[in-house]
Amino acid sequence: MNLPNSITMSRILCVPVLIWMLSPHFPHSGWHGEQELIASLFFILVSISDGVDGYLARHRGQITTMGMLLDPIADKLLIASAYITLVQFNPHVVKPWIAVLVIGREFVVSGLRSIASTEGFTIEASDVGKLKTVIQIVSVVATILDHGWYVWHFGWFIVPVDLIAVVGIYYVVIVSTISGVDYFVAFWKKIDKASAMTRKHDNESVLSRKKKDLPPAARNVT
């Protein structure tokens, strides 16, 4: 297993660690702010590894079928585990329906990509989809920190942690919905185009077979 795939696999193995960090069984649970800081830093590092393994795979020429399979699985598992755990960890911000919508969108897009792959085409990540990924990371970190702090005071400067968490989560809901629709529209256009080309090819094949079945004299009639 090459280095990029090892990093991707380690991200999958980090999922149960993140769940443990956000649970009451974590050793620093109940301490003011320590659990939240540790879990936030851990989630940020694991999220950064998503870009690192992709960068290494491209620049080392180590893009493999295993990596293409594991990378989206690792991403989906990390986001799904984060939002499901946050429903219990900070129910004030993450409601169950929010977790269902965000996670459902991830699996719907994965399903569309799988169907597209079997049809012989791909659906590239849109700018909205990339924006959604960044906002998801920010919203998860803010929601974790919101469990320990309502605001941060740095002298006269105030960071509204709770406001950032709430706005971030609902912004994720909006962007996830928009990007999901965007993926579906892109999929529909390509699948419709692929179906049209298939029908055209089938019609040409039928006409070719019919022409071959004609007598030699009839084939030359224009």
Rank of each mutant, 00 (worst) to 15 (best):
D50A: 06
G51H: 10
A99W: 15
F107W: 15
I84E: 02
Y150F: 05
V140Y: 04
D202V: 13
G51V: 15
G180E: 11
G168M: 15
A186N: 05
F184L: 15
V134M: 04
L70H: 03
S117K: 08
D146M: 04
W156S: 11
V172P: 01
L13H: 12
E36T: 13
V167H: 00
S114M: 13
V109Y: 06
V167T: 02
T122R: 01
S126E: 03
V140H: 04
R209H: 11
S40T: 13
L56C: 13
S81F: 09
L214H: 00
S29G: 01
E36P: 04
S195H: 05
T8E: 09
P160I: 05
T64W: 11
S179P: 13
V17G: 01
V87M: 07
N203A: 04
H147Q: 10
G120E: 05
K212F: 08
R11K: 14
I178Q: 06
W31V: 11
L70F: 10
Q35V: 07
N2V: 04
A39M: 12
P96V: 07
K76L: 03
T118K: 14
W152H: 05
L18F: 15
H147V: 04
I12W: 11
A194Q: 14
K210G: 02
S117P: 02
S114R: 14
Q88T: 02
A116Q: 00
Y83G: 01
K189I: 15
N5D: 06
I98N: 04
D71T: 09
F157L: 09
P72A: 08
